[in-house]
Design a protein around this nucleic acid. Structure first.
Lengths: 249, 249
DNA sequence: TAAATATATGTTTATTTAAACATTTTTTTA
DNA sequence: TAAAAAAATGTTTAAATAAACATATATTTA
């Protein structure tokens, strides 16, 4: 199947940094055209970088921002956002992680509260709602998804105490917990987990079952998952048995 | 010259959104190879996006940030920005204060350097130029201009050392120095002044002669003023005699 | 100013690309 | 299970690309 090969290409690239189309075609015993199509898909998702004749890792950034404008997933993410936003009570201090699903939470937010975020788009959305105080963490600006990362971000987060954390993830899996392709983002998420009393994972069901390069959280640190109705029964049951409350939008 | 053509290509792309290499080669009466080299440069700077046979604008930016325009006096502010940007040398670490004129500096910036800013719009403009490292200070998001202010902003700034500070001001006057109507912004500007080796004031000539609520700097802390040709001779002479170098865009 | 050097541009060519269509494999539906 | 539909892959071909080298044009330097 093409998606398995594409996963494998990612791993190979992480190892070798830089592989040609010809090399990959030989490796998988498929035509170069097929490899090109794989690389095009991966590049469209922002998971690799493309050059003439070759593929490069690391990617500039995950293109989650692009998915926001891709239509169908947008609707579900918006629903997830609305449901998640109801979990906030007036006066809460809330951390909103960077990501398109958490951006959905920001857009749905009407409760008077304080928001701490490392996402420039979220700060943009909430910036002029005068009932909401928005604190943007400092940090290095990551192109494409406009998240703030790095040591400054982490040290700023250390200074806060939050009632609730709305956390995003690139990959969500029963056995491997929450993962992402970007180490810098992982580190920031881990800092967020440390300073939040309650953790709510918001994730589109398509992300469930995916595993990326770095696991930043195990299930025991997550209290609630808000996702859409695409979630399989079996997984839902497993999560419940692990003590994770599951809400479907 | 190649860089002028590259500027022009950017403008054309902003207008048309999407142009082929062949079209551009005809337009400028140069070979397709030359256009390809231009596009490669622009793409390397993150200023355009490349596809097989064509160039695309703009690279994905959060809409809120794009909407931030410079308002009145846009032309002159853009000119001031271009001139001011030439003062930056490769490898500099530069603080860009929040404001529309400093936003003009950001837009004109092509030199490889590190930018520290408390302005969300500036971070938006520079965020995906991969030759430029952008550090956004943390802080509370101020609704109207999307500047970051408050104690967090100040304490983050304390940790930096910058070669150059590009400073904006609401009011600029010979006798009363630089002023603004907003106390929180004043405090942040003063912190910036403390950590910068060299200070360049960028201000539209219409601001000169105006005095606002709070003076945050006197002339002895300013080395250079970049403004437009609307500046009166008399004021220019006075500034020179005070040791302020004046540049007219 | 002239020579030296760096930068920009053009030309040729082998390689890479994507579109179009054909074929195979997988998945869905009846 | 068989038929239909969808997805993945392969093949051919015209267009696009980048490397290598040649030539022209600025920019320094002596």
């Amino acid at each position: 199947m093409s998606s398995e090969r594409q996963d494998e290409i990612q791993w190979l690239l992480q190892e070798h940094g830089n592989l040609t189309v010809t090399e990959l075609a030989k490796r998988f015993n498929v035509s170069e055209m097929t490899i090109r199509r794989d690389l095009k898909n991966l590049a469209a998702l922002g998971l690799i970088q493309r050059e003439h004749g070759r593929a490069i890792y690391p990617p500039v950034l995950p293109t989650e921002i692009l998915m926001m404008s891709m239509g169908e997933a947008e609707r579900e993410k918006s629903r997830i956002g609305h449901l998640a936003a109801t979990l906030i009570t007036e006066g809460d201090s809330v951390i909103l992680d960077a990501g398109t699903t958490t951006l959905g939470v920001a857009q749905a937010l009407t409760t008077k509260c304080t928001v701490i975020t490392n996402s420039i788009p979220i700060a943009g959305v909430l910036g002029n709602r005068n009932e909401i105080t928005v604190l943007l963490t400092g940090g290095e600006v990551q192109g494409k998804n406009f998240a703030l990362v790095g040591p400054l971000t982490r040290s700023v987060l250390k200074g806060f105490n939050a009632d609730k954390l709305f956390l995003g993830a690139t990959g969500v899996a029963i056995e491997r917990g929450l993962s992402t392709a970007n180490m810098l983002e992982s580190e920031v998420k881990q800092e967020m987990l440390k300073v939040a009393k309650e953790v709510i994972l918001v994730a589109h069901s398509a992300k469930i079952g995916q595993i990326y390069f770095h696991t930043f959280a195990r299930w025991d640190s997550i209290q609630t998952l808000v996702t859409d109705s695409g979630l399989e029964e079996e997984i839902r049951d497993k999560l419940n048995s692990m003590g994770v409350k599951v809400l479907l939008a």
